[in-house]
């Protein structure tokens, strides 16, 4: 069962003089769902941005699906194509329709024929239940719909891993649920996921493991039940008492 897909070893990262990641070690196995939580500024987002090298780490090694992340560009693009990412601010391409948002990368990065890409996109849009919006532009959709489209867009690349960077933080409370539902469905389908979120309900429902970060370090890492029922670290206890 030790089918490790992401291996993070002794990673350190600095922004100028400020150390954002301190000695991070993390192994993620295939089909596992990891939830990363922690106070803001604790380096959660930076950590998952390092996994598809939107940020560079300065020390240590990150191996994704057997490829080590280095300076080599082709390698990075190949890895990014296998790692889907969903952002807090959705980051849909506003000049393209929803359907084009989803087909752009498959067609031009994976060289998929346009027709196939459209079928694939419709399939994924169907899954997140916005197939009827396919020909609208992002600006015409609600926040929740946009975020679901962003999930579909990432899925269209048929990634092995999905990264979520606070996907619900920019949404109205009413819309959070529809996005979380889409994510729960995805988790049930067996996707490997790393989710940075403050939605503890979601963590309890789908996560295999919960990681608590503070000041650039992994403070606590435990199986979900253990984490909520029996937190060990004082900082974790404080955080949980505030958020639950």
């Amino acid at each position: 069962m030790s089918d490790t897909i992401i291996q993070i070893k002794d990673v350190n990262k600095w922004f100028g003089d400020f150390q954002v990641l301190k000695n991070i070690n993390l192994n993620v196995e295939k089909n596992k769902k990891i939830v990363v939580c922690g106070p803001s500024g604790s380096g959660k987002s930076t950590l998952i941005r390092c996994i598809n090298r939107l940020e560079e780490h300065q020390q240590g090694s990150i191996v994704v699906d057997g490829n080590e992340l280095t300076e080599d560009t082709k390698n990075i693009e190949q890895i990014r194509a296998e790692v889907g990412m969903v952002f807090q601010q959705f980051n849909l391409f506003p000049h393209l329709s929803i359907l084009d948002n989803c087909t752009l990368a498959p067609v031009w990065v994976k060289k998929m024929p346009k027709k196939d890409a459209e079928d694939l996109a419709m399939k994924h849009l169907e899954k997140v239940q916005i197939a009827d919006q396919a020909h609208k532009f992002p600006g015409q959709l609600s926040g929740g719909q946009q975020q679901r489209c962003a999930i579909a867009r990432a899925l269209c690349m048929e990634p092995k891993i999905m990264l979520f960077d606070e996907p619900t933080s920019a949404l109205d409370p009413e819309m959070i649920k529809e996005v979380l539902d889409a994510m729960v469905n995805l988790a049930k389908a067996g996707m490997t996921m790393i989710v940075v979120t403050h939605e503890m309900g979601f963590a309890k429902e789908v996560a295999d493991e919960v990681i608590f970060m503070d000041e650039g370090m992994i403070v606590e890492k435990a199986a979900t039940n253990e984490f909520f029922a029996n937190p060990k670290n004082d900082r974790t206890k404080l955080f949980l008492s505030q958020i639950l």
Binding site: N52, T73, N91, F93, L104, A105, V109, M157
Partner: peptide
């Protein structure tokens, strides 16, 4: 916004694809 670059990169687009399909159409508009 920087998010546009991030999104394009995270989909595996290289410099030219990112600029031709995502960045320039918006910037020129």
């Amino acid at each position: 916004p920087r998010g546009q670059y991030d999104a394009a990169k995270s989909l595996g687009m290289g410099y030219w694809k990112m600029h031709i399909f995502v960045i320039l159409p918006q910037a020129l508009k």
